[in-house]
Amino acid sequence: MSTTDAALPPFTEIVARHGATVWRVCRAVVGADAADDAWSETFLAALRAYPDLPPTTNLEAWLVTVAHRRAVDVVRRERRTVPAGTDPSDLAAPARHDAPDPAVRAADTEVWTRVAALPERQRLALAYHHLGGLTYVEVAALVGGTSDAVRRAAADGLATLRRTYGSEEIA
């Protein structure tokens, strides 16, 4: 416990400040169905480790790394319940339940199908860099490979999503 000014903020503040970002990352990595579960596992693990953290830690980046490890666990657990013969080739099978507007829902369903179909490294690079705010170097440290490879994976993944989804969305 530190008595200096550089103290850890109360954990409730961390949840309020970074909860939404962590959830976006979880959903991109494990899919909408498992996102809540991955979010809960992430924050519970973070809460357990929190008091021992150096107060200067970049908390959002730390949470994204915790989310990565928890997401891997969540997916492993789900795979155990996957019937034999199906292909658990990588993390996730994103699905979506809660888009209100039917026109938007069609486009979103499409993008989530595309996200699910991305190679795992592309999806992780996209999630951790573009949604989680990690640098390419930090993502590389987390998932392996070089930062250049991570940069390419993120760009390729984004290009794939844009090809089918982007024109009306980004214009």
Partner: peptide, 22 residues
Amino acid sequence: MTTTDIPRALAEGPSPARLGAL
């Protein structure tokens, strides 16, 4: 965070109610 150039569906966060329940 770089969310300006990614599909909206990915950038969209959880609803306040969902985050509250979590």
